[in-house]
Amino acid sequence: MNSLILPAIYLGGCIAAMSGFSYLYRRATNFQPIEPWFPENVEKEQYIQLLNCETPVPEHHLKAALLRRAMEAVRRLVQVQQEKPALQQLMRTGSIGDDLWRDFGVAEQDIMAELQEVVGEANTYKENWGQTIFSTAAQMLEHEKQKAMLVEMKELKEVEDKKRKAMEKDLERDAKRAEEELLREEEEEKKKAKAKK
């Protein structure tokens, strides 16, 4: 009887150790760091730095920095709203993994928290500014987008003008060559005609 107790204890200890190792291993492999969906929020960091400056920063600078922070929050919110339906569809079809969907969910929560923070900060400067700061930020973003489009259109027009001018030069050169060729042929015809006489 005593001879069976020692192997049973040893076997039980091995099974317990393997179970514990298996549990810890599964937890370690399932833990995956959350990948940030967006790059660092520079506008938020700049606003916080201005708030924490040793020398007091004029309020209008703080308001402008907060407005830039709100613009970035709106930009990120719009991007998340545009990407969500496609990601949901990919998730349903199994084209993306749970980890990507989890990262997206964390980004969405971060944006909602950021929006609430901006509203809270805005209301510290002016009562109810938190209710209008995002509409102002959205208008400013739209203005920036239109400005960028105008610059892009101007650049495209310049490129097209250069192409058109180059084509016109090529056509003029080709026409000149053709004209010179015709004149040369006419001269040769005249010379041949004189030689026959």
Rank of each mutant, 00 (worst) to 15 (best):
Val78Leu: 11
Val57Leu: 04
Ala73Gln: 00
Phe134Trp: 03
His143Ala: 13
Pro33Gly: 07
Gln131His: 09
Leu77Ile: 09
Gly105Gln: 13
Pro39Met: 05
Arg68Thr: 06
Asn52Leu: 15
Leu77Tyr: 12
His61Leu: 15
Val118Asn: 00
Lys126Phe: 07
Glu45Cys: 08
Arg68His: 08
Leu141Glu: 04
Glu83Arg: 11
Trp101Gly: 03
Leu115Trp: 01
Ile96Tyr: 01
Val80Met: 11
Pro56Asp: 03
Phe31His: 14
Pro33Trp: 07
Ala65Leu: 02
Glu54His: 09
Pro36Ser: 08
Asn123Phe: 05
Arg92Phe: 11
Ala70Ile: 00
Pro85Met: 04
Gly105Trp: 02
Val106Phe: 05
Pro56Val: 04
Val118Ser: 00
Ala64Asp: 06
Gln32Phe: 06
Trp37Ile: 05
Met112Ser: 04
Ala70Ser: 03
Cys53Ala: 13
Gln82Ser: 07
Phe104Ile: 02
Gln32Asn: 11
Ala122Arg: 01
Trp129His: 14
Gln89Glu: 15
Gln32Cys: 07
Gln109Ile: 06
Arg75Ala: 06
Arg75Pro: 03
Arg102Phe: 07
Glu142Gln: 13
Lys126Pro: 04
Leu66Phe: 01
Gln116Asn: 15
Glu83Thr: 10
Ala28Leu: 08
Phe31Asn: 12
Leu51Gln: 14
Gln81Met: 06
Tyr125Met: 09
Asp110Trp: 02
Gln81Arg: 12
Leu115Ala: 01
Thr124Arg: 13
Met112Glu: 05
Gln81Ile: 03
Glu40Pro: 11
Cys53Arg: 11
Glu40Trp: 11
Asn128Pro: 11
Tyr125Pro: 03
Ala113Arg: 12
Asn123Leu: 04
Cys53Phe: 10
Glu59Asn: 08
Asn128Leu: 15
Gly120Ile: 04
Lys126Leu: 08
Ala86Asn: 13
Val42Glu: 10
Gln131Leu: 11
Gln81Tyr: 03
Trp37Ser: 03
Gly120Met: 03
Arg76Pro: 01
His143Asp: 10
Gln116Met: 13
Phe134Thr: 01
Glu142Gly: 09
Thr55Lys: 10
Gly105Ile: 08
Gln89Asn: 15
Pro39Ile: 03
Tyr125Glu: 06
Glu114Met: 07
Pro33Cys: 06
Leu100Trp: 02
Lys44Asp: 06
Ala137Met: 01
Ala73Pro: 00
Glu142Ser: 10
Thr55Arg: 10
Glu35Leu: 05
Leu77Asp: 12
Ala113Lys: 10
Gln49Arg: 14
Leu87Glu: 00
Ile111Gln: 00
Ile111Asp: 00
Ile133Cys: 07
Tyr125Lys: 07
Ala70Gly: 01
Glu45Gln: 12
Trp129Leu: 15
Arg76Asn: 03
Ala113Gln: 11
Ala65Arg: 00
Asp99Arg: 13
Gln88Tyr: 09
Glu127Ser: 08
Ile34Ser: 07
Gln49Ser: 15
Glu40Ser: 15
Arg76Ala: 01
Glu127Asn: 07
Thr55Asp: 08
Pro39Trp: 04
Val119Ala: 11
Gly94Ser: 06
